[in-house]
Simulated assay, not measured.
Amino acid sequence: MKVFAIGSIIKPLTLEQAKPIMAKEVPDTLQLYLDGKIEQFWHRKDREGVIFLINAESADQAKATLAKLPLVEGGFLSFEYVLVGPLAPLGRLIQS
């Protein structure tokens, strides 16, 4: 199962906060990618935030995975979780 985790900054970081938090956020995020938990990631263009495509069995599992990130733990970033899967109606287009 795949889950889109759509993240929005809810409390901007000060310059003093950014350096120590981001020094941990970046490697933690990359480790989730290397562990296969984050499949793809993007920077949002409509507002400050990120979008992750997560490999998870449920939205709760995706939420538990991302809850450990420093920006989430610190209350700076929150996510909306959307379960996605194959576009099943396309099967109607296949003739038996």
Rank of each mutant, 00 (worst) to 15 (best):
R47C: 06
K37T: 00
A18K: 14
W42K: 07
Q31P: 11
Y33N: 06
M1K: 08
L34V: 13
K11I: 01
P20V: 10
K63S: 11
I54A: 05
K63F: 00
E48S: 13
L71I: 04
M22L: 15
K45Y: 09
G74S: 05
F52D: 07
Y33S: 01
Q31I: 13
R92E: 13
E48I: 03
K63G: 00
L34M: 15
R92N: 13
M22H: 04
I94Y: 09
A88T: 15
A18I: 02
V50Q: 07
N55W: 06
L66K: 02
I6M: 07
V50A: 12
K63P: 01
I10W: 02
A5C: 00
R44H: 04
Q31M: 14
S78F: 01
K37I: 06
S58T: 07
K37P: 02
A62T: 03
Q95P: 06
K37L: 09
R44Y: 08
F41C: 11
I9Q: 12
G75P: 06
A23F: 07
V82P: 05
G7T: 01
P86T: 13
F79E: 11
L77F: 14
M22S: 07
F41P: 03
Q61N: 03
R92Y: 08
L30I: 15
V26Y: 08
L77S: 03
F76G: 03
V72N: 03
L83N: 12
E16K: 13
A59H: 00
G74C: 01
S8L: 05
P12N: 11
I54L: 12
W42S: 10
P27A: 00
L53Y: 10
V50K: 05
M1T: 10
P89G: 11
L93M: 13
I6K: 02
F79C: 04
T65K: 00
I9D: 03
I21K: 10
P27V: 10
F52C: 09
G75V: 06
I10Q: 04
A18V: 09
L69V: 02
K63H: 01
E73W: 03
K24V: 12
Y33C: 12
G91K: 14
I10S: 07
H43E: 12
Q31T: 14
P70L: 08
I54N: 07
L77H: 10
P89T: 10
G49Y: 09
V3E: 01
R44W: 01
P89K: 08
I38M: 05
G91Q: 12
M22E: 08
I54F: 03
I54C: 04
L15F: 10
V84G: 05
L87Y: 15
K2I: 01
G85W: 03
P86R: 14
A5P: 00
L66I: 01
A88I: 15
F41K: 12
S8F: 03
A5V: 02
P70F: 08
E57N: 13
G49E: 11
L69S: 02
R92D: 13
K24S: 10
L30R: 15
V84R: 09
I38P: 05
E25Q: 14
F79M: 04
K24Y: 06
Q61M: 06
G91R: 13
M1N: 10
L93I: 06
D28W: 09
P20K: 12
A56R: 08
E39H: 11
V72I: 07
R92P: 00
